[in-house]
Every structure is written in C-alpha cells, then in structure tokens.
Design a protein around this nucleic acid. Structure first.
Length: 271
DNA sequence: ACTGGCTCCTGAGGGC
DNA sequence: TGCCCTCAGGAGCCAG
C-alpha cells in the first residue's frame, strides 16, 4: 500500500512529465471512489496548465492555474504516465490527457483513494486543514511530540498514526519507527519521556527518508504502461515479520492488534 | 478534548 | 483445480 515514501516517489516520478503541461481532456470512467470524483473537473480542467506537483501528508496536489487537484492513493491507488493511448482496464478511474499526447491515468481497485478539486488555498481544504506537521519538516521534533502527548492515554502507535499529530505516518512506518526508537507500541503516549520522543522523531524521519531514497533508486522509469506504478519493497525490520528474529536481539517479532491495526514489535527491545 | 469503533471495497490467501 | 470464507488496510467520521 502506498505509504508516504511511495507517494513522494510517485510525486517525483510524475513531476517531470506533467509540470508545465496543459490539460487537454479529463475522462472519468468510474467516479466511485471514497468520495465521488467531481464531474466538473471534466469541464474545468481542460485548458489549464499544471504548474507544480506537491505533496501534503499522503495527498498529491496538482496545482493548475485556477485551483488544485487533490489526489489520494488510498491503499491500492496508482498513477501512471502513459506515453500514448492504450485501452483502459478494469479499475482505471480516470485519465488526464496532456498536450504532449501523454496521459496520466489513475487506477484504484479498492476505491479507498480520492480525487477532488478545490479552487481555494489547499491548506484550507477540510481534508488538509486538520493535518499536523509534515514528518520531514523541522516543526516535527521530539519537543513537539512530547508537548502534544501530555495527558494522552492512547497508545504510542495510535498517537503516531493520528494525522492531527503528524501527517502521513501510516501503519507500516509507525511500527518501524517505534522499533527503531525502542518504544513499545502499546505504551501510553503520555508516559514517554522527552528524550525518547527525540529518538522517535529522528526514527520517523530516518525511516521515511531511507525509504524515499530507496524508492528513488529502485524505480527504473516511471513511464511504463504495464510496469511499476511507484510501489517498491521497502526495507522493513518488524512489519509483517511475526515470528522472525529481531535484528537486534534475535528473539521473535510479535504481532498484536493495537487500535484496530496490526502492530509488530520486539517485546525485548521495545519498552 | 479524547477515545474507540465503524465504514467504504476488493483481492489475496487459507482451508477443504 | 477450484470454490468459498475471512480479513487487511487509510483515514474520515461519529458517538459516547
């Protein structure tokens, strides 16, 4: 599933192909996503130039002249740059055709993704305005986490996955970061010392940054009709490794559901 | 203000 | 080989 590093990889992958390009047509084939794809983008977007592609949390933002297209990949969404027309397949929800003749195609079998359009400042959009700081920004640090966590009884893992606290840290990287920081995922967020939050903030940043670097080097070419939609196999130390030896102590990795989410950790190395 | 639980949907994977 | 059942998963939303 696309986590923040994959979304960033997708952003970097499509950026050179769409920036500065004028949209010639938008075709919606299957509007049913998490929210219906707004019909008006088929009339509003054509003629507009895509000025830049940015990311906020796991949302991709395509800035056009008179608004922003918000794209979320959900858990099975992908964006591909098609150099020339090719027949759409099942779950291909929409095409954004460009003046270069290339086509940006959005596909999402499980329909947890979304494609929305706003003419207002994107940070004011209801889905973006409640988001906490970006995990790779300076605003995200141990002191910030410590302050926000006082009095909170939720688990460290749920706390870290709360997008109002920090944006875009999903299930996989929450487990990985807590492991790196030596913090037990079920520990109440309000009962973690500040220096441990310093370690956690660094772990989150390093884990995501490592994965982004890996994504950048793993991808051959983003322009590929059949190939890679931007996913890659990240280097994971605990996620989905139940029963396998901990890289640190050799004891078995455990799996436990915390906050309705599978969590993986080492009971010996994390407290 | 917090917290936990529900929801959307499909494909993968296990059991038989 | 094939069918059926269960379930994971992002994250907004709602109820308590």
């Amino acid at each position: 599933m696309p986590e923040l590093p994959e979304v960033e990889t997708v952003r970097r992958g499509i950026e050179p192909h769409v920036t500065g390009r004028r949209i010639t047509a938008v075709r919606i084939r299957e509007p049913r996503l998490r929210w219906p794809v707004p019909r008006r983008i088929t009339t509003v977007l054509p003629g507009q130039v895509i000025e830049r592609v940015t990311r906020r949390a796991k949302y991709l933002l395509l800035r056009v002249e008179r608004g922003h297209l918000l794209i979320h990949l959900g858990m099975s969404g992908s964006l591909r740059v098609l150099p020339e027309p090719c027949p759409p397949q099942m779950h291909d929800h929409l095409d954004i055709e460009l003046d270069t003749g290339t086509c940006l195609r959005f596909r999402d079998p499980r329909r947890f993704g979304s494609v929305l359009f706003t003419t207002r400042a994107p940070e004011r959009h209801r889905l973006l305005r409640t988001l906490g700081p970006e995990p790779l920004s300076d605003a995200f640090n141990g002191g910030y986490l410590y302050e926000r966590s006082r009095g909170r009884r939720v688990s460290a893992k749920s706390f870290l996955m709360d997008s109002r606290i920090v944006a875009g840290v999903g299930n996989i990287y929450a487990s990985e970061s807590l492991y790196r920081a030596g913090i037990h995922p079920a520990r109440p967020a309000g009962r973690i010392a500040e220096h441990r939050y310093d370690a956690l903030a660094s772990a989150v940043r390093d884990t995501l940054q490592d994965a982004i670097s890996r994504g950048g080097s793993t991808l051959r070419d983003f322009v590929d009709e059949n190939g890679s939609p931007g996913y890659f196999v990240p280097l994971l130390e605990v996620y989905d490794r139940e029963g396998l030896p901990c890289c640190g102590c050799g004891r078995g990795i455990r799996r436990r559901v915390i906050g309705q989410r599978a969590s993986y950790y080492c009971a010996h190395c994390q407290h």
